[in-house]
Nucleic acid binder design. Structure first.
Lengths: 346, 346
DNA sequence: AATAGAGACTTTACCGGTTCAGTAGGGGGT
DNA sequence: ACCCCCTACTGAACCGGTAAAGTCTCTATT
């Protein structure tokens, strides 16, 4: 990409116009001491008149801050497009970045190794000042890589998964437990869960919590769990196989790990001639607008994904400015009952 | 954001290890003539051994290419998250950027003025080498801004909207016409369209084409059109009001401008006790996985959004490397009939 | 034998900032 | 009147590359 002969205005022009050296302009724009109020004012006026803003490229090269935050996402593109989660998360992140005139460098990667290489090259090339890490797996290589590089990073995921990195997480275990208790309280004793990708850490956490929660029920209940790839198709397949059994062997309630799968489940139930919620109750996760667009509307474990993204970004700025590792829980998803859950019909 | 005392390896280290000057290293890495094959090889080996890659920041500052592409999106975050379109589009763009080791700088903005300011600051600060422009409106200020700045840009939208910029577009008019003819061929004579945001250029194009297509029908048909904000809620409201009328005044087929609204419409029909497609046919746009997850499945005007994004990115590289303005149509969306369209019941 | 020209590098001057060691000028203390 | 210190600012080096001009060595030409 070649440059165009646009007459660039640089710090030198501003300095000349204000009648000072470029060092002075730099001091002014970085709010550092050593300038009189009058000079400072003059410099800002000159900059305003010329429409100048410091070049972040030059700043970066000169060794100060890097005002770009990296986000590598490793999921097949088609899935990504569908999951309302990501875009909303990104918009939350953005909302905080904008306040600090930072930008988001986004990259879709195909695997964790690629992601590690990317982070390394971003960081070593000073392209980013820090990074957000999502979708943790067991034995994730990223915390070690971040540590080795000294890359400021925030991990989105439970501390048990994020290898000592500063983490921001929702308490999935508690949420799963709440979901199970809610369904049990409605009278359900045959409860299934259509989980997300088995390789993801938070899926394991939810799986364990679900088992635990069902085991704790009194009177005892029957449980089913499957893993999927989060896609609607997988959700549909899982639902079909769950609902294919005759009534005593068929769950009366199904919990899904995202809302796409729940939507798919709803349609499978309809296709099989089962009424929701009379014959089977459905409970979605990651409540997005989608859950209110179906008929019946979907009950969901909902949380504020936008706010979540914002929290993550804020936390990252903390890490960048030197805060030690920490663990930041965000509010647990709350149960939002709608039309898809009800007591099982006798 | 402060730098960490990571021992950076720079071009100097590579030069020293290969026993040449840094100029030589630069020549080698930019595949420029003037080096013997042996030296070139030695340099690459040294770089590989040290794990060095040129710093894109320094490169940018030195005045050569900027390997970042900008994309500012102006839509409310909640909507964005829902529209499968964007993430899929972005993933298509990425797929081409990755091949050329470029990155995507993404920013959500709240208005066109903000976007113009952003583009200006990105470009003047040499943060981007070019930009993708989406969501054109009437009298859009962006083509003029891009022209004034000399910013290489590709406009996603019909040439009539994009003010002389190189454009990549789908032929919405033809697609709308095809949709109308298809419904008419099924026997529908009362056809409604739930359009997108009225301010967007492609919405006007579709609106005009719809009018035109309906007028051309023989025997004559009755038509309705509304504008929305693309949200599911708006789609639901529009559908409700369309279906509230008694049969002779009620459309027997509805076309939606995206799939979210079609899903919402489907649920409204169910809620009102109308059968799809027996009582009313529904046709979605921007076919995503969502359309196959409902019951009945949604017929849709589908196109390859991922490929569209890739085309846009490729075109942008063309513009960046100096190609003059051009107009690049991509394949027209094709009708994909599924379960939500059928002849109206007598 | 002198000269030109090409090939293979090296040197050097930027790019647009930051940073830090100076330095000029003014006020206070003795 | 002299020294010292503080404030306010300047100048130059540097960040990690690129690019244009310069140097040196060889070979081909006249």
């Amino acid at each position: 990409m070649t440059a165009t002969p646009t007459p660039r205005v640089t710090i030198k022009d501003v300095a000349a116009r204000a009648g000072v050296s470029k060092g002075a302009v730099s001091l002014a724009f970085n709010r550092k001491p050593g300038l009189s109020e009058a000079t400072r004012e003059r410099i800002f006026r000159a900059a305003r008149e010329l429409g100048w803003a410091p070049s972040s490229t030059a700043r970066t090269l000169a060794g100060s801050r890097v005002d770009v935050v990296g986000l590598a996402v490793c999921r097949p593109a088609r899935l990504l497009g569908l999951e309302p989660f990501y875009m909303e998360f990104v918009s939350g992140v953005e909302s905080v970045l904008v306040e600090r005139s930072c930008s988001l460098l986004l990259r879709l990667v195909r695997g964790q190794d690629e992601e590690v290489r990317l982070l390394e090259s971003w960081w070593r090339g000073r392209q980013i000042g820090g990074s957000i890490l999502v979708d943790f797996r067991a034995d994730d290589p990223r915390p070690a890589a971040a540590g080795r590089l000294g890359l400021p990073a925030v991990a989105v995921g439970h501390p048990s998964l994020t290898g000592g990195l500063t983490s921001v997480w929702t308490d999935d275990a508690t949420a799963v437990t709440e979901a199970v208790r809610y369904l049990a309280a409605l009278g359900h004793r045959r409860i299934a869960r259509v989980g997300g990708a088995a390789a993801l850490g938070h899926t394991s956490i939810r799986t364990a919590a679900f088992d635990e929660a069902v085991r704790a029920l009194e009177p005892p209940a029957r449980a089913w769990q499957t893993a999927t790839d989060f896609s609607g198709d997988a959700g549909a397949r899982a639902t079909r196989s769950l609902l294919a059994a005759a009534p005593p062997e068929r769950p009366t309630a199904i919990v899904y790990d995202n809302d796409i799968m729940a939507v798919a489940g709803l349609s499978v139930a309809a296709e099989m001639g089962l009424r929701v919620p009379a014959d089977v109750s459905l409970l979605a996760w990651d409540d997005s607008q989608l859950c209110r667009l179906t008929h019946p509307t979907l009950s969901a474990m909902s949380h504020d994904v936008h706010g979540f993204g914002a929290d993550v970004a804020r936390t990252l700025f903390g890490v960048i400015s030197g805060e030690g590792p920490g663990s930041h829980p965000v509010p647990t998803p709350v149960l939002t009952p709608r039309g898809s859950t009800a007591p099982p019909k006798a």
